[in-house]
Amino acid sequence: MLFEILSDGFFAAVAAIGFGAISDPPMRAFPVIALLAAAGHALRFVLMHNGMDIATASLCASVVIGVGSLLLGGRIRCPMTVLFIPALLPMIPGMYAYKTVFAMIMFMQHLGDSAASTLYMEEILRNGFVTFCVIFMLAAGAAAPIFLFNKRAHSLTRNKKYISE
């Protein structure tokens, strides 16, 4: 079990580094991105393993990533979004998105057969809804600390010696 959690975190970290690289982050951000992605994805893995649904588990994980980027962002002077957007990407529900597209195609191929087309329509709704919910939860959960801790979130890139508490 512990090995599974660790390997889940490891692959999430690699995925986050790679997807982050597309958006050209500063070099000093990579370790933090990897750490946040691993922590978030492993947490989601554990929660889902204990019976929580994917949307709620994603929300918990994204809040952890958001708060983590707030706490660590000041140290390396990076805005929160720079850290949490790559860290969230490994949690994109790719299989659900794929199944939605596949069901759409199969639906079109079975328009004449009402039993089969109903089945595929149900698949489209089910998978599409999960995809939408998870992506929304990811974005909302990670961005929440920006709104809650406004002042701190807006001065992460400021030199510490000028910040008066």
């Binding site: 692959f11 690699v14 995925a15 580094i17 790679g18 690289a21 050209d24 490994p90 790719g94």
Partner: peptide
Amino acid sequence: PRLDPIFTLILVGLANASFCRLF
């Protein structure tokens, strides 16, 4: 300069491969 395109290419490949593993 931006990150080297070849470097990015390899990182993205590894990223998507680990994504596959996660699924």
